[in-house]
């Protein structure tokens, strides 16, 4: 099986995806991802020269828009009802930069 991603890559991907993985999880994830990516090989072997991609499987549907008309919003309470933490009618989060400075 080809090595598509290394453990180092998996650590970077996890960091970007904002998922903490323990060292042993990194090892297993690397194995799993390589196996799955290996199974995607057919897609890389197709002759697709000149084939237009279908990003939207909706036929000829285009220019779908709504009118600029106000619709009732949530009440403040509804908006905040699922907030894990709140303060002063806002969603409350811990320090964005943390102690390590900018990320």
């Amino acid at each position: 099986m080809a090595q598509h991603v290394t453990e180092r890559d998996v650590r970077d991907i996890a960091e970007y995806a904002r998922i903490h993985l323990d060292p042993d999880e990194i090892v297993q994830m690397t194995v799993d991802l390589n196996s799955i990516i290996d199974s995607l090989k057919p897609i890389t072997e197709y002759d697709l020269e000149g084939v237009v991609p279908t990003f939207h499987p909706i036929g000829s549907l285009s220019n779908v828009m709504r009118e600029d008309v106000e619709v009732t919003s949530f009440t403040q309470e509804e908006a905040l009802s699922n907030a894990p933490a709140r303060q002063d009618d806002c969603f409350l989060i811990p320090s964005i930069l943390g102690e390590g400075g900018d990320r």
Binding site: A79, Q87, D88, D89, C90, F91, L92, I93, P94, S95, I96, L97
Partner: peptide, 8 residues
């Protein structure tokens, strides 16, 4: 900052 408040 120790915390931030978010208003959408």
């Amino acid at each position: 900052a120790t915390h931030s408040l978010v208003d959408y």
